[in-house]
Amino acid sequence: MEANKYISQYCVIENNSVAINGEPQFALENGSFSEFAKAAYKHFGIDYPKFFKMDNLSKLAFLTSEIILKEVVNPAEENDIALVFANQSSSLDTDAKYQSSIADETAYFPSPSVFVYTLPNICIGEICIKHKLQSENAFFVFGEFNAAFMSNYANLLLETNKAEKVLCGWVEYYNEKFKAVVYLVEKQGKLEHNEQTVNTLYTK
């Protein structure tokens, strides 16, 4: 029988607030997502200027992941952390912005820096670049949060020794509405990793 897996850390961002392992850590009353993201970036002492070039989906995924990974990743060695992320709206928010920039034939100036974010998996690429992760990664698009799939996929990666740890995340952003739930699955931790626990992280 396979050894149990655990959720060692989790971070939830929604309603302009950040909670780590269930404890509220930061909130910004009112303000757009960009204002909230910038304030959270400064609050958590993140120093990565490329953050400000990211689209909103990547900012959301990066922030939520960084809060966990900055305590976990050892920059002096290779970190075998796989990433499994998902959402509902893919990169539609940025796709729409890009489309609007090429809709007018008389003012046709497609932006390269917007175009590069017109795929949802770019957000996990940003996390991998920051921490030099070369492990397995995948991004899925579901109609709704799918705890069964996420927990099965993470377990499979660990049981087949594809990774030592798996960073899982639901990162949904569309038109200023957003929610991110990111958690780290590994062999030690406080919460047992299973479908029910994952669902609890998402719904509570």
Binding site: P49, P110, P112, S113
Partner: peptide, 17 residues
């Protein structure tokens, strides 16, 4: 300033626009 290759493309757009 530490600009990257995507920034270079964006500067080309700026010249045009």
């Amino acid at each position: 300033l530490g600009l990257d290759s995507i920034d270079a493309l964006e500067l080309i757009v700026l010249l045009d626009k």
